Amino acid sequence: MNGDDDLARLGVVVGGGLLAAVLGIVVFVVVPGSLVDLLGLLLTIGVVLLGTRAAGDFADSAFPDYNVAEVAVEGPITRDGSTPGPIPGGALGATADDVVEGIERADEDDAVDALLVKLDTPGGQVVPSDDIRRAAADFDGPTVAYATDVCASGGYWIASGCDELWARRGSIVGSIGVIGSRVNLADLAEDLGVSYERFAAGKYKDAGMPLKELSEDEREYLQGIIDGFYDDFVERVAEGRDMEPEAVRETEARVYLGDDAHELGLVDSIGTRDDVEDRVEGLLDTEVSVREFESKKGLAARLRGGATAVAYAAGAGVASVLVDDEQDFRLRL
Protein backbone atom coordinates (compact mmCIF):
# COMPACT_ATOMS: atom_id res chain seq x y z
CA MET A 1 0.00 0.00 0.00
CA ASN A 2 1.43 3.42 -1.01
CA GLY A 3 1.08 6.93 0.42
CA ASP A 4 -1.60 7.92 -2.09
CA ASP A 5 -3.79 5.06 -0.89
CA ASP A 6 -3.26 6.18 2.72
CA LEU A 7 -4.43 9.69 1.87
CA ALA A 8 -7.36 8.31 -0.11
CA ARG A 9 -8.49 6.14 2.79
CA LEU A 10 -8.17 9.04 5.22
CA GLY A 11 -10.14 11.24 2.86
CA VAL A 12 -12.95 8.70 2.60
CA VAL A 13 -13.20 8.31 6.38
CA VAL A 14 -13.10 12.04 7.16
CA GLY A 15 -15.46 12.84 4.32
CA GLY A 16 -17.90 10.19 5.42
CA GLY A 17 -17.86 11.45 8.99
CA LEU A 18 -18.40 15.08 7.95
CA LEU A 19 -21.21 14.13 5.60
CA ALA A 20 -22.88 12.13 8.37
CA ALA A 21 -22.51 15.09 10.77
CA VAL A 22 -24.11 17.54 8.33
CA LEU A 23 -26.92 15.13 7.57
CA GLY A 24 -27.53 14.51 11.27
CA ILE A 25 -27.69 18.24 12.08
CA VAL A 26 -30.08 18.96 9.22
CA VAL A 27 -32.40 16.05 9.92
CA PHE A 28 -32.42 16.08 13.71
CA VAL A 29 -31.66 19.69 14.70
CA VAL A 30 -32.51 22.26 12.02
CA VAL A 31 -35.73 20.71 10.75
CA PRO A 32 -37.45 19.79 14.06
CA GLY A 33 -36.68 23.10 15.81
CA SER A 34 -35.35 24.05 19.25
CA LEU A 35 -37.62 21.82 21.33
CA VAL A 36 -35.73 18.76 20.25
CA ASP A 37 -32.25 20.27 20.07
CA LEU A 38 -30.90 18.07 22.84
CA LEU A 39 -32.33 14.91 21.37
CA GLY A 40 -31.16 16.04 17.97
CA LEU A 41 -27.62 16.49 19.24
CA LEU A 42 -27.58 13.00 20.70
CA LEU A 43 -28.96 11.52 17.52
CA THR A 44 -26.44 13.50 15.50
CA ILE A 45 -23.60 12.01 17.49
CA GLY A 46 -25.00 8.56 16.84
CA VAL A 47 -25.28 9.24 13.12
CA VAL A 48 -21.70 10.55 13.05
CA LEU A 49 -20.40 7.40 14.69
CA LEU A 50 -22.36 5.13 12.37
CA GLY A 51 -21.36 7.16 9.33
CA THR A 52 -17.70 7.13 10.28
CA ARG A 53 -17.77 3.40 10.82
CA ALA A 54 -19.50 2.81 7.50
CA ALA A 55 -16.97 5.06 5.76
CA GLY A 56 -14.14 3.18 7.45
CA ASP A 57 -15.52 -0.16 6.26
CA PHE A 58 -15.84 1.22 2.74
CA ALA A 59 -12.29 2.60 2.85
CA ASP A 60 -10.96 -0.77 4.00
CA SER A 61 -12.72 -2.40 1.08
CA ALA A 62 -11.72 0.18 -1.51
CA PHE A 63 -8.12 0.68 -0.32
CA PRO A 64 -7.07 -2.48 1.55
CA ASP A 65 -3.83 -2.28 3.50
CA TYR A 66 -3.49 -6.04 4.02
CA ASN A 67 -3.03 -9.17 1.94
CA VAL A 68 -3.07 -11.86 4.66
CA ALA A 69 -5.95 -12.69 6.99
CA GLU A 70 -5.55 -14.11 10.48
CA VAL A 71 -8.12 -15.91 12.59
CA ALA A 72 -7.56 -16.97 16.19
CA VAL A 73 -8.81 -20.14 17.89
CA GLU A 74 -8.24 -19.56 21.59
CA GLY A 75 -9.57 -21.47 24.58
CA PRO A 76 -11.79 -24.56 24.56
CA ILE A 77 -13.77 -24.87 21.32
CA THR A 78 -17.55 -24.97 21.48
CA ARG A 79 -20.41 -23.94 19.28
CA ASP A 80 -21.35 -20.85 21.32
CA GLY A 81 -18.18 -20.09 23.27
CA SER A 82 -19.36 -21.49 26.60
CA THR A 83 -17.34 -24.17 28.37
CA PRO A 84 -19.54 -26.81 29.97
CA GLY A 85 -17.87 -29.66 31.73
CA PRO A 86 -14.83 -29.96 34.00
CA ILE A 87 -13.08 -26.73 33.01
CA PRO A 88 -12.51 -24.59 36.11
CA GLY A 89 -13.69 -21.03 36.14
CA GLY A 90 -16.21 -21.30 33.35
CA ALA A 91 -14.05 -19.15 31.05
CA LEU A 92 -15.32 -18.39 27.59
CA GLY A 93 -13.63 -20.20 24.76
CA ALA A 94 -13.54 -20.17 20.98
CA THR A 95 -16.91 -19.80 19.27
CA ALA A 96 -16.69 -22.08 16.25
CA ASP A 97 -19.33 -20.30 14.19
CA ASP A 98 -17.54 -16.97 14.65
CA VAL A 99 -14.18 -18.45 13.61
CA VAL A 100 -15.75 -20.05 10.54
CA GLU A 101 -17.41 -16.73 9.70
CA GLY A 102 -14.03 -14.99 9.88
CA ILE A 103 -12.41 -17.56 7.57
CA GLU A 104 -15.25 -17.34 5.06
CA ARG A 105 -15.13 -13.51 5.06
CA ALA A 106 -11.38 -13.68 4.42
CA ASP A 107 -11.92 -16.17 1.60
CA GLU A 108 -14.43 -13.83 -0.04
CA ASP A 109 -12.13 -10.79 0.34
CA ASP A 110 -10.27 -10.17 -2.93
CA ALA A 111 -7.43 -8.51 -1.02
CA VAL A 112 -6.63 -11.65 0.98
CA ASP A 113 -4.12 -14.05 -0.58
CA ALA A 114 -3.26 -16.26 2.41
CA LEU A 115 -4.66 -17.33 5.78
CA LEU A 116 -2.95 -17.57 9.17
CA VAL A 117 -4.65 -19.68 11.84
CA LYS A 118 -3.46 -18.90 15.36
CA LEU A 119 -4.01 -21.87 17.69
CA ASP A 120 -3.94 -21.62 21.46
CA THR A 121 -6.50 -24.22 22.43
CA PRO A 122 -6.69 -27.50 24.35
CA GLY A 123 -9.38 -28.69 21.93
CA GLY A 124 -13.10 -28.89 22.24
CA GLN A 125 -16.31 -30.27 20.86
CA VAL A 126 -15.98 -32.54 17.85
CA VAL A 127 -18.33 -31.02 15.27
CA PRO A 128 -17.43 -27.35 15.97
CA SER A 129 -13.73 -28.25 15.70
CA ASP A 130 -14.37 -30.03 12.43
CA ASP A 131 -16.32 -27.04 11.10
CA ILE A 132 -13.25 -24.85 11.60
CA ARG A 133 -10.98 -27.47 10.03
CA ARG A 134 -13.22 -27.71 6.97
CA ALA A 135 -13.36 -23.93 6.57
CA ALA A 136 -9.56 -23.71 6.71
CA ALA A 137 -9.19 -26.59 4.24
CA ASP A 138 -11.64 -24.90 1.83
CA PHE A 139 -9.79 -21.56 1.90
CA ASP A 140 -8.57 -20.63 -1.58
CA GLY A 141 -4.91 -19.92 -0.93
CA PRO A 142 -2.03 -20.93 1.34
CA THR A 143 -3.07 -21.70 4.92
CA VAL A 144 -0.48 -21.71 7.70
CA ALA A 145 -1.39 -22.64 11.27
CA TYR A 146 0.86 -21.74 14.16
CA ALA A 147 0.67 -22.89 17.77
CA THR A 148 1.42 -20.58 20.66
CA ASP A 149 0.97 -22.21 24.08
CA VAL A 150 -1.27 -25.19 23.28
CA CYS A 151 -2.34 -26.96 20.10
CA ALA A 152 -3.91 -30.17 21.30
CA SER A 153 -6.68 -32.52 20.26
CA GLY A 154 -9.38 -30.43 18.58
CA GLY A 155 -6.76 -27.75 17.97
CA TYR A 156 -4.56 -30.30 16.23
CA TRP A 157 -7.63 -31.52 14.33
CA ILE A 158 -7.98 -27.96 12.95
CA ALA A 159 -4.26 -27.76 12.12
CA SER A 160 -4.58 -30.91 10.02
CA GLY A 161 -6.77 -28.93 7.62
CA CYS A 162 -4.03 -26.35 7.01
CA ASP A 163 -1.11 -26.59 4.59
CA GLU A 164 1.51 -26.17 7.33
CA LEU A 165 1.75 -26.16 11.11
CA TRP A 166 4.35 -24.14 12.98
CA ALA A 167 4.99 -24.20 16.72
CA ARG A 168 7.26 -22.69 19.36
CA ARG A 169 9.80 -24.85 21.12
CA GLY A 170 7.74 -24.71 24.30
CA SER A 171 4.35 -25.27 22.65
CA ILE A 172 2.28 -28.23 23.80
CA VAL A 173 1.22 -30.22 20.74
CA GLY A 174 -0.67 -33.47 20.17
CA SER A 175 -3.16 -35.38 22.32
CA ILE A 176 -4.51 -37.32 19.33
CA GLY A 177 -6.87 -39.57 21.23
CA VAL A 178 -10.30 -39.99 22.77
CA ILE A 179 -11.33 -40.74 26.34
CA GLY A 180 -14.72 -41.73 27.67
CA SER A 181 -15.71 -41.34 31.30
CA ARG A 182 -18.67 -41.73 33.60
CA VAL A 183 -19.17 -41.23 37.31
CA ASN A 184 -20.11 -44.51 39.00
CA LEU A 185 -22.38 -43.72 41.95
CA ALA A 186 -23.93 -47.16 42.25
CA ASP A 187 -22.19 -48.13 45.51
CA LEU A 188 -22.80 -44.72 47.06
CA ALA A 189 -26.46 -44.87 46.09
CA GLU A 190 -26.74 -48.28 47.72
CA ASP A 191 -25.16 -46.98 50.93
CA LEU A 192 -27.63 -44.09 50.97
CA GLY A 193 -30.57 -46.33 50.26
CA VAL A 194 -31.14 -44.82 46.81
CA SER A 195 -32.29 -47.17 44.09
CA TYR A 196 -32.39 -46.77 40.31
CA GLU A 197 -35.56 -47.68 38.44
CA ARG A 198 -35.42 -47.85 34.69
CA PHE A 199 -38.12 -46.39 32.46
CA ALA A 200 -36.67 -46.23 28.97
CA ALA A 201 -37.47 -47.29 25.42
CA GLY A 202 -34.44 -48.72 23.67
CA LYS A 203 -31.85 -51.12 24.98
CA TYR A 204 -29.00 -48.62 25.33
CA LYS A 205 -30.96 -45.46 26.17
CA ASP A 206 -29.65 -45.31 29.74
CA ALA A 207 -26.19 -46.73 29.08
CA GLY A 208 -23.79 -44.63 31.12
CA MET A 209 -26.24 -43.56 33.82
CA PRO A 210 -24.17 -43.09 37.00
CA LEU A 211 -26.63 -44.72 39.41
CA LYS A 212 -26.28 -48.20 37.95
CA GLU A 213 -23.45 -50.58 37.16
CA LEU A 214 -22.53 -51.01 33.51
CA SER A 215 -23.27 -54.37 31.96
CA GLU A 216 -20.59 -55.90 29.75
CA ASP A 217 -22.83 -55.32 26.76
CA GLU A 218 -23.18 -51.62 27.60
CA ARG A 219 -19.45 -51.32 28.22
CA GLU A 220 -18.74 -52.78 24.78
CA TYR A 221 -21.28 -50.41 23.21
CA LEU A 222 -19.74 -47.30 24.78
CA GLN A 223 -16.21 -48.43 23.97
CA GLY A 224 -17.32 -48.84 20.35
CA ILE A 225 -18.35 -45.18 20.25
CA ILE A 226 -14.93 -44.15 21.56
CA ASP A 227 -13.14 -46.40 19.05
CA GLY A 228 -15.20 -44.91 16.22
CA PHE A 229 -14.28 -41.36 17.18
CA TYR A 230 -10.63 -42.32 17.51
CA ASP A 231 -10.51 -44.02 14.10
CA ASP A 232 -12.01 -40.91 12.51
CA PHE A 233 -9.54 -38.66 14.35
CA VAL A 234 -6.56 -40.73 13.19
CA GLU A 235 -7.84 -40.78 9.62
CA ARG A 236 -8.31 -37.00 9.52
CA VAL A 237 -4.84 -36.32 10.95
CA ALA A 238 -3.11 -38.87 8.72
CA GLU A 239 -4.77 -37.42 5.62
CA GLY A 240 -4.17 -33.79 6.54
CA ARG A 241 -0.60 -34.25 7.76
CA ASP A 242 0.36 -36.76 5.03
CA MET A 243 1.30 -39.34 7.66
CA GLU A 244 0.73 -43.05 7.93
CA PRO A 245 -2.23 -43.85 10.23
CA GLU A 246 -0.03 -46.21 12.24
CA ALA A 247 2.45 -43.40 12.91
CA VAL A 248 -0.39 -41.30 14.26
CA ARG A 249 -1.57 -44.15 16.49
CA GLU A 250 1.96 -44.63 17.82
CA THR A 251 1.77 -41.20 19.47
CA GLU A 252 -0.67 -42.87 21.91
CA ALA A 253 -2.47 -39.58 22.55
CA ARG A 254 0.60 -38.05 24.17
CA VAL A 255 1.29 -34.33 24.20
CA TYR A 256 4.73 -33.20 23.06
CA LEU A 257 6.84 -30.09 23.32
CA GLY A 258 7.34 -28.32 20.00
CA ASP A 259 10.80 -29.73 19.25
CA ASP A 260 9.70 -33.30 19.92
CA ALA A 261 6.54 -32.83 17.86
CA HIS A 262 8.70 -31.56 15.02
CA GLU A 263 10.95 -34.62 15.15
CA LEU A 264 7.87 -36.86 14.96
CA GLY A 265 6.48 -35.02 11.96
CA LEU A 266 3.54 -33.60 13.85
CA VAL A 267 4.84 -30.06 13.21
CA ASP A 268 6.39 -28.75 10.00
CA SER A 269 8.65 -26.06 11.45
CA ILE A 270 9.68 -24.42 14.70
CA GLY A 271 9.70 -20.64 14.86
CA THR A 272 8.25 -17.40 16.12
CA ARG A 273 5.36 -15.41 14.73
CA ASP A 274 7.86 -13.35 12.70
CA ASP A 275 9.24 -16.56 11.20
CA VAL A 276 5.70 -17.57 10.21
CA GLU A 277 5.16 -14.25 8.46
CA ASP A 278 8.49 -14.68 6.66
CA ARG A 279 7.29 -18.09 5.49
CA VAL A 280 4.06 -16.62 4.14
CA GLU A 281 6.06 -13.93 2.33
CA GLY A 282 8.01 -16.72 0.68
CA LEU A 283 4.82 -18.52 -0.31
CA LEU A 284 3.30 -15.36 -1.79
CA ASP A 285 6.60 -13.96 -3.08
CA THR A 286 5.70 -10.52 -1.79
CA GLU A 287 5.73 -8.47 1.40
CA VAL A 288 2.79 -9.29 3.64
CA SER A 289 0.53 -7.22 5.85
CA VAL A 290 -1.73 -9.13 8.22
CA ARG A 291 -5.23 -8.18 9.32
CA GLU A 292 -7.16 -10.11 11.97
CA PHE A 293 -10.60 -11.21 10.84
CA GLU A 294 -13.05 -11.41 13.75
CA SER A 295 -16.73 -12.07 13.96
CA LYS A 296 -18.81 -8.93 13.64
CA LYS A 297 -20.78 -10.17 16.66
CA GLY A 298 -18.15 -8.89 19.08
CA LEU A 299 -15.18 -10.02 21.12
CA ALA A 300 -16.87 -11.74 24.08
CA ALA A 301 -16.39 -15.25 22.71
CA ARG A 302 -12.66 -14.66 22.42
CA LEU A 303 -12.08 -13.98 26.11
CA ARG A 304 -10.46 -16.81 27.97
CA GLY A 305 -7.84 -17.64 30.57
CA GLY A 306 -4.59 -18.89 29.08
CA ALA A 307 -3.55 -20.58 32.31
CA THR A 308 -6.86 -22.43 32.43
CA ALA A 309 -6.36 -23.76 28.93
CA VAL A 310 -2.85 -25.04 29.66
CA ALA A 311 -3.88 -26.65 32.94
CA TYR A 312 -6.84 -28.31 31.28
CA ALA A 313 -4.74 -29.71 28.43
CA ALA A 314 -2.04 -31.07 30.75
CA GLY A 315 -4.33 -32.35 33.49
CA ALA A 316 -7.70 -33.34 32.19
CA GLY A 317 -6.91 -33.99 28.56
CA VAL A 318 -8.28 -32.11 25.60
CA ALA A 319 -12.02 -32.18 25.87
CA SER A 320 -14.96 -32.40 23.61
CA VAL A 321 -17.88 -33.07 25.91
CA LEU A 322 -20.84 -34.73 24.29
CA VAL A 323 -23.53 -35.19 26.94
CA ASP A 324 -26.89 -36.77 26.19
CA ASP A 325 -29.63 -35.24 28.34
CA GLU A 326 -30.56 -38.74 29.43
CA GLN A 327 -27.06 -39.92 30.23
CA ASP A 328 -23.87 -38.89 31.97
CA PHE A 329 -21.28 -40.42 29.65
CA ARG A 330 -18.65 -37.95 28.46
CA LEU A 331 -16.35 -38.21 25.48
CA ARG A 332 -13.21 -36.10 25.37
CA LEU A 333 -10.97 -35.78 22.34
Score class of each variant (00 low, 15 high):
Ile226Met: 12
Ala309Gln: 15
Gly306Pro: 11
Leu333Ala: 07
Glu287Tyr: 08
Tyr196His: 14
Lys296Met: 11
Glu190Phe: 14
Leu41Gly: 15
Ala200Ile: 01
Arg241Leu: 01
Ser181Gly: 12
Ile172Asn: 04
Asp110Leu: 11
Leu284Thr: 00
Asp98Phe: 10
Gly51Gln: 05
Asp65Leu: 01
Pro88Asn: 07
Ala114Pro: 01
Val22Asp: 06
Val127His: 13
Tyr156Ala: 01
Gly141Asn: 08
Val178Tyr: 03
Leu266Gly: 00
Ile132Asp: 08
Ile179Leu: 12
Gly24Thr: 06
Asp107Gly: 13
Val29Glu: 13
Val31Arg: 09
Glu287Ser: 12
Tyr256Trp: 08
Met209Trp: 13
Ile132Leu: 13
Gly123Arg: 07
Asp187Lys: 14
Tyr196Met: 12
Ser171Trp: 00
Arg291His: 04
Ser295Leu: 11
Asp65Ala: 03
Leu39Arg: 15
Gly40Glu: 04
Gly40Ser: 06
Leu264Trp: 04
Pro76His: 14
Ala253Phe: 06
Val100Thr: 03
Val29Ala: 09
Thr286Tyr: 05
Arg249Tyr: 01
Leu299Asn: 13
Gly81Glu: 09
Gly155Ala: 07
Ala159Gly: 04
Arg330Pro: 04
Asn2Arg: 04
Ala55Phe: 04
Gly224Trp: 08
Phe58Glu: 07
Leu23Arg: 05
Val255Gln: 04
Ser171Leu: 02
Gly271His: 10
Val173Lys: 00
Arg79Ala: 11
Arg134Asn: 14
Thr52Lys: 05
Ala8Pro: 10
Leu92Lys: 14
Ile87Pro: 02
Asp6Ile: 08
Ala96Gly: 02
Glu70Asn: 02
Arg105Glu: 12
Glu252His: 10
Glu108Arg: 09
Ala136Glu: 12
Val194Asn: 14
Ser129Gln: 11
Phe28Leu: 06
Arg219Cys: 05
Ser295Glu: 10
Ala159Cys: 06
Phe139Asp: 09
Asp138Val: 10
Gly141Leu: 09
Ala201Ser: 01
Gly102Tyr: 10
Glu70Met: 05
Gly240Glu: 04
Asp140Phe: 05
Ile25Pro: 01
Val323Asp: 11
Asp80Leu: 10
Ile226Tyr: 10
Glu235Tyr: 11
Ala319Cys: 06
Arg9Pro: 00
Pro84Arg: 12
Glu277Cys: 00
Lys212Gly: 12
Tyr204Ser: 06
Leu39Lys: 14
Asp206Arg: 12
Thr148Trp: 07
Glu74Lys: 04
Val112Asn: 00
Leu7Cys: 07
Thr78Pro: 06
Gly265Leu: 00
Tyr156Leu: 05
Pro32Thr: 09
Ala106Ser: 07
Asp65Gly: 04
Glu277Leu: 01
Ala96Pro: 00
Glu246His: 01
Phe139Ser: 10
Ala159Tyr: 02
Ala137Trp: 09
Val150Tyr: 05
Ile25Gln: 06
Leu222Thr: 10
